[in-house]
Amino acid sequence: MSGVDLARVALRAAKEQARARGTAAQQRKQARRGGGLRSGARSDGRDPLPLGSAINRLITERGWETPAAVGGVMGRWPQIVGEDLAKHCVPVRYDEDPRERVLTVRCDSTAWATQLRLLAPQLVARLNADLGQGTVRMIKVLGPGGPQRGFGPLRSPGSRGPGDTYG
């Protein structure tokens, strides 16, 4: 190897050492400022996520898959049960007890409540097909909530109200 080649090799080694010292100094300087390493052009774990991905990750981490799916059912109720039934019956609550996973539905008349009780097995099958097997085990059907029965000077204690619409 000639002297010129040795000089080139030495110069290249010196440049690499200077570059390494400069990078290390820059990293120390950023660490002192509290910035740490900065994100580069390539993606890493510190990059921001789209909102949908962040929400899906949060739902998965917290174990909220079933309540989120049931909440979706509440929003898509007319598509699941049909427009006619959805006009008269509204989902109220979902109780996620491991033994009893109950969807509570309130109807606006006793006739619609009876109709929904007859359709309950098919509706449970449809919901489980949509949400996953065993998500809903029972549908609790509530009739219409009548007015509060107050007892006063103009009411007798045994009167129930205007017939079967509130039962």
Rank of each mutant, 00 (worst) to 15 (best):
S2T: 15
S2L: 01
G3H: 15
V4M: 12
V4K: 12
D5N: 07
L6D: 15
R8K: 13
R8T: 12
V9M: 14
V9G: 12
V9Q: 15
L11H: 12
K15F: 15
E16A: 15
Q17K: 14
A18M: 14
R19T: 05
A20S: 07
R21E: 07
T23P: 00
A24D: 05
Q26N: 11
Q27A: 13
G34H: 01
G40E: 08
G40F: 05
R42G: 08
D44K: 03
G45E: 13
G45V: 05
P48S: 10
P48T: 04
P48Q: 03
L49C: 02
P50S: 04
S53C: 10
I55N: 03
I55K: 12
N56P: 04
R57V: 05
L58D: 08
I59P: 01
E61Y: 13
E65I: 14
E65G: 07
P67C: 06
V70P: 00
R76V: 00
Q79C: 00
I80C: 11
V81M: 00
G82K: 08
E83P: 07
A86W: 06
A86F: 11
C89M: 04
C89Y: 01
P91A: 01
Y94H: 09
Y94W: 12
P98A: 04
E100P: 00
L103C: 07
L103K: 04
T104M: 04
T104E: 06
R106Y: 02
R106C: 02
R106P: 08
R106A: 14
W112A: 05
A113I: 01
T114N: 15
Q115K: 11
P121T: 03
Q122Y: 09
N128W: 04
N128K: 06
A129N: 14
A129T: 13
D130P: 02
L131D: 01
G134M: 02
R137F: 12
M138C: 00
V141F: 12
G145D: 13
G146T: 02
P147C: 04
P153D: 07
P157V: 05
R160E: 03
R160G: 09
R160I: 06
Y166A: 00
